[in-house]
């Protein structure tokens, strides 16, 4: 791997976990890119906040429950997780409903953070 200046990467997750493949694809890309020692942020907005909901049980839909993997992110040194407050509130959710520690930001705070990024990947 070539040494270089770490760039700021942001992954923006806006989809619910099982209705489409986006959430799982995003998580896989995050895990792979964690090997490249960049400054990575994960953002959960809109239905993306459902990805982090505690208590998912997927036996009935015969789909892999990948929600425990979000708890592995810390071990991959991916520690900047942000959730938009407005997205939580409009879904009747609070920070306590989430299975990992996150920073809850307002839309405008999130907008500022997004503006600082070098690369933004949308899912």
């Amino acid at each position: 791997m070539t040494e270089g200046v770490a760039k700021k990467f942001m992954f923006v997750n806006r989809t619910a976990p099982y209705g489409t493949i986006y959430a799982l694809e995003s998580l896989e890309v995050v895990l792979i890119s964690a090997a490249f020692d960049q400054d990575v942020s994960l953002v959960f907005v809109d239905d993306g906040v459902w990805q982090l909901k505690k208590g998912q049980q997927t036996k009935g839909i015969e789909t892999k429950n990948f929600s425990p993997t979000y708890r592995a992110l810390e071990g991959y040194d991916v520690e900047k997780l942000y959730v938009e407050r407005e997205s939580l509130e409009s879904r009747g959710l609070t920070e306590d409903d989430l299975l990992v520690d996150v920073n809850v930001l307002s839309s405008s705070e999130l907008g500022e953070l997004m503006a600082e990024q070098d690369v933004v990947l949308s899912f």
Binding site: A16, P17, Y18, W50, K53, Q56, Q57, K59, G60, I61
Partner: peptide, 22 residues
């Protein structure tokens, strides 16, 4: 549909008046 409800971890917070089915 309950399997979808359980996958999404919302079984304990459904509004009144909806019926769960398998």
């Amino acid at each position: 549909l309950l399997p979808d409800v359980e996958a999404r971890a919302i079984a304990d917070r459904l509004v009144d008046g909806v019926t769960g089915i398998d």
